[in-house]
Amino acid sequence: MSAIAELQSLSKTKGRKAPAKDNKAAHIFLIPWTIGLFLVTLGPMAMSLYLAFTDYNLLQSPEFTGFANIERMLDDQRLHNSLRVTFTYVLVGVPLQLAVALGVAILLDRGMRGLSFYRSVFYLPSMLGSSVAIAVLWKQIFGTTGLVNQMLEIIGIQGIGWISDPNTSLGSLILLNVWTFGSPMVIFLAGLRQVPAMYYEAASIDGASKWRQFRSITLPMISPIIFFNLVLQIIGAFQNFTQAFIVSNGSGGPADSTMFFTLYLYQQGFKQFDMGYASAMAWLLVLIVGAFTAVNFFVSKYWVFYDD
């Protein structure tokens, strides 16, 4: 089961306690994990929840300010804009990326020659994609005199500065996200392999068209995998940082058009050292990501089909 299917099934089984016969050994094996959970994860989480209600600049001790940070978030136009940018990136970028991933996976699954070669070629960008180097490359190819415009010139079109124009800069980053469709594609491919061939054979004997087979067999059979990819990619996309940072030299520009929420958080926390406000923002991000995931899980009951 995937991590997500596991969480779903755990939420259904209740009560039943484990016999707990290996307590001692388990304590030893879990020493690093337990220390990590409290010292690196839960402790800092509690701390940042406290800091969210303070004014703290790292030099003086935190000063409790009640709901001041939340009120400030409600009034902060740049923060609202960063949410708009991030939501656009997630809501456009993720579905597009997954659609391409699924489409290519289906094409490759049709028994194309040289499958493993093509799989590598498509998979590679998603492994390199989070590097600074790729963001550097993107900055050049979508620049005013970059590769894209050189190619457009060949067919006689005068391109614009895609990265430097606030109307298209976010689009260039969405395209970069689509370009890294390789990881979900590999997961889709593995899923498609598990759909029993006899379903398709039966359907084609009954005269079902390819499109009909896709809608009535492929889609329901791989719906748990679509769900898995959707949840993980959404969570990942909300946290994207590197590309927006590099492309805009850390400014989120032009005109805040690539000011991702995480970039704004970084600026507030680690450039202005406004750590109280940054903590409040971090918790807002957790709530947003949590809400998206919860809605995803809830809606999944209506469209995700489990075979067993």
């Binding site: 690196v40 994860t41 402790g43 800092p44 989480m45 701390m47 940042s48 800091l51 969570i235 909300f238 946290q239 995480t262 958080l265 926390g269 750590m275 940054a278 903590s279 923002m281 971090a282 918790w283 991000l285 957790v286 990501v289």
Partner: peptide, 8 residues
């Protein structure tokens, strides 16, 4: 998200 633990 790592952001909720990075500041503390």
């Amino acid at each position: 998200p790592i952001h909720v633990i990075i500041v503390p």
